[in-house]
């Protein structure tokens, strides 16, 4: 079973090599498919550490984007990078079976692909909708405004920019678009 020199392809039977066993134990307990990728312990450990950092950085870039370096696009690219790292190191199934807790069999289509499509369309709708919203007030397309909320417990003062809605739309579009491509190509 655990023949490391040969291909451990029949993945559904969860070949109990040292590394995969670890993963099965820390997961939801379900015996997921083993990794048919020949990734090293180092790569997997590093990805475990790096992915949360990448996601947090991406969100920070997204939320400060309207008046400091960053923005929806670059935040989305980073987020997609985090997902791609998981895909590359742990395989296509890992994201939905271990991180999202969805049962899957290798024969079914990759479930998140459908969500990515919706995210893409929804993001576009949000971005365009936030641009059209000012038209209701008689202002030109894409006009942005900003409001300051005072007296908040921790923040004190919070800047709420309408550009954030647009940025969120861009974020959804780019994450959805990039991951649709990655997931579709990865499935084949």
């Amino acid at each position: 079973m655990s023949d490391e020199t040969e291909s451990n392809r029949p993945a559904a039977t969860a070949g109990p090599t040292d590394e995969t066993e670890q993963t099965v134990n820390t997961s939801t307990g379900r015996v997921g498919p083993a990794f048919d990728h020949r990734t090293t312990v180092i790569a997997r450990t590093v990805v475990r550490v790096v992915v949360p950092v990448v996601v947090v950085t991406a969100l920070a870039l997204l939320f400060q984007g309207h008046n400091r370096p960053g923005g929806g696009f670059i935040g989305a690219v980073l987020t997609a990078t985090a997902a791609v790292l998981v895909y590359v190191i742990f395989g296509l199934e890992y994201l939905q079976s271990h991180l999202l807790g969805i049962d899957s069999s290798p024969n079914e289509p990759h479930a998140p692909t459908g969500w990515y499509r919706w995210l893409f369309a929804g993001g576009l709708a949000l971005a365009a909708g936030s641009g059209m919203f000012p038209l209701l007030a008689g202002l030109p397309f894409l006009t942005q405004g900003v409001a300051f909320v005072h007296g908040l417990p921790i923040y004190g003062e919070l800047e709420v920019a309408s550009a954030l809605a647009f940025d969120l739309g861009v974020y959804g579009t780019v994450v959805g678009g990039l991951l649709t491509v990655v997931a579709e190509v990865g499935e084949e």
Binding site: F120, A121, L124, A125, A128, F141
Partner: peptide
Amino acid sequence: LLVALATAILTLLAR
């Protein structure tokens, strides 16, 4: 511009 853009997005959502 907006009509074409909105229609494109709505057809995407109506798939």
